[in-house]
Amino acid sequence: MKLTLKIWRQKGPKDKGKIVDYPVNDVSEDMSFLEMLDVLNDDLVRKGEEPIAFDHDCREGICGACSLFINGEAHGPGRMITTCQLHMRKFKDGDTIHVEPWRAEAFPVIKDLAVDRGAFDRIQAAGGFVSVNTNGNLVDGNALPIPKADADTAFDAATCIGCGACVATCTNSSAMLFVAAKVSQFALLPQGKVEAKNRVLAMVEQMDKEGFGNCSNTGACEVECPKGISLEHIARMNREYLAASVTKE
């Protein structure tokens, strides 16, 4: 197929960006979206032009590195997939495709389509852990039975890949789904209960400091999340946060 790509180009964090048109021919429907960009980049390098910068790594939907906003949707058309799992058979010959980076104040553009998601790491460092040191004398793993339903729900929350699609999708650039996934995972498990209050307060405080917006419950994040993380986790975080706020010492 033949396609027209309209791609955001931006030299560096402080430069002004713009949309540039690129016609691409001979696109096979078996290609992934990122492979289609590889072919375009190959061509640009041969012509002596600057290739398009974009983040990617595992190319199987689990590392969370890839991050494109395609035709107005995080990770493009299709549900429960990342951009690396999007294949060109989702498009038609002659289509025009708009490709932009994640747009959020807390995710500044580094170059072209690559953004800085360091804010997520800082939120994690604020409280996204259980305070247990490495220790060869811990109690046996089975000394702490956990109801299967709780373990399964905690797992559902823990599948977050930290890609930032929730933020990019949200009209307020809110990171609530990302933060809630981690808060919720630990809130559901006995190991996480000890520090639950401090955790939710610290992570939310850091989230606010990073410049993410508020949640207005539109639910768009859940729709675009490649791991289908549920809004219920945001509700759980709100309960945790409220309880922690009124009972903190």
């Binding site: 852990f129 259980v130 247990v132 490495t134 220790n135 811990l138 109690v139 046996d140 793993g141 089975n142 702490l144 039975p145 956990i146 109801p147 299967k148 373990a151 399964d152 905690a154 797992f155 823990a158 995972q185 630990f186 498990l189 190991q191 996480g192």
Partner: peptide
């Protein structure tokens, strides 16, 4: 396994709540 459980890694569990 003990270390990871203590960290809150959500391993698969059976209906008795064990690993």
């Amino acid at each position: 396994i003990d270390q990871c459980v203590a960290q809150g890694v959500p391993f698969a569990r059976d209906y008795g709540g064990l690993l």
